[in-house]
Design a protein around this nucleic acid. Structure first.
Lengths: 205, 205
DNA sequence: GTCTATAGTATGATAGAC
DNA sequence: GTCTATCATACTATAGAC
């Protein structure tokens, strides 16, 4: 991770908001400057270019989401619980940071080649978190998964695709959506349902 | 639906490709004109503005995806099968039309207000297809779903989020991904697994 | 329905004063 | 580290000839 001065953060937040609303290509450096309460020239004191700002927003967002997942899953006792805590954390992060997350997830293509490599690495690390827990659960018999990589990708889609439509004024629904995503992810990997009655499910077939 | 002249289609396809690569805001009308093999002025003979072009691309894409799902599910005999055919069709459409789909799914915010309403209607209709089949399966006992609307949203995310990273040169994997998404969606709604052995699953607990 | 030419404005980024 | 002023270019869209 990397630290930012207050002035840098101010520009960074302004850029994230602008990119999220109008896309990278649709955002002008003047728009960023106005949101930050600075002149257009002041932006270039802290960042060399508009793309450099996008890179900073993107790296910061990926780092934060990744850390949230790791911290949430630290004390999980089983693969089912670890997957659950990770999906819960990822979903909450994407909902609570929907604006930043939109930039993080949808503006990858606007990065220049060297920056793209750094972000691709961060993405691989996050995917690996899910791959590892699914592989562990599959090996222990807690899960039943054919395509581990594909299932991991789909599990991450549950939280990522939320930012396509979720608006911050619906944050009161975040907890409900997070709980739903946890249950769906556990079903996707074939984890035993935590609260339902297995005897009834078996008898009914 | 709506018909287009060959000249209109040519510009439409050029716009879809350009928007997909650089985003709406990052695309110039000159870029569209060059891709279509026309002068910048020729674009405005067929469309009143750049945003009008985006609207046409978006409406056309939503219509096509919606029709693909309806046609695929026409002969399905059960809720499980109908959900499967719909997810299969939606996944294949998004993979085979990843460029257009990116515009359709990610550039909604760039539409002007009147156009946004039309697209929002189309989206509601597509979501309703999934909501209906899940509600039917839940009522018949084929599925076991708590949050029908939320689960429908998540099922659609499986196919939509693919366009965030899928590239057309990997189309040979489309069938595999579509099959996986079908299996995942059926697990998400609690449908009985089609091929596994229930006795063994029960005995192992 | 296409072109060339262009109007009028906005853009990313820099120079130089304070 | 911030500002005002500005450069050089690119932008969306239109006018008018063919």
């Amino acid at each position: 991770m990397q630290d930012y001065t207050p002035a840098q953060e101010r520009v960074l937040d302004a850029a994230a908001a602008a990119f999220s609303e109008h896309g990278f290509g649709g955002t002008s450096t003047r728009d960023i400057a106005v949101r930050a309460g600075r002149s257009p020239a002041a932006v270039y004191v802290h960042y060399r270019s508009k793309e450099d700002l996008l890179f900073a927003v993107s790296r910061r967002g990926h780092d934060a989401a990744h850390r949230a997942m790791i911290e949430a899953s630290a004390d999980a006792a089983s693969p089912t619980e670890r997957l659950g805590t990770m999906v819960h954390a990822s979903t909450l992060w994407h909902l609570e940071n929907a604006r930043v997350a939109r930039v993080v997830q949808y503006e990858y293509g606007a990065l220049t080649e060297p920056h793209r490599g750094v972000i691709a690495d961060l993405r691989r690390q996050t995917t690996q978190l899910i791959v590892d827990v699914i592989a562990e659960g599959d090996a222990s018999g807690d899960f039943d998964v054919d395509d581990i990589a594909g299932t991991a990708r789909a599990v991450l889609s549950l939280s990522i695709d939320l930012v396509r439509w979720f608006s911050p004024d619906r944050l009161d629904q975040a907890a409900r959506i997070a709980r739903l995503n946890v249950a769906l992810a556990q079903r996707m990997v074939g984890a035993d349902p935590p609260r339902s009655a297995p005897t009834i499910r078996c008898a009914s077939r």
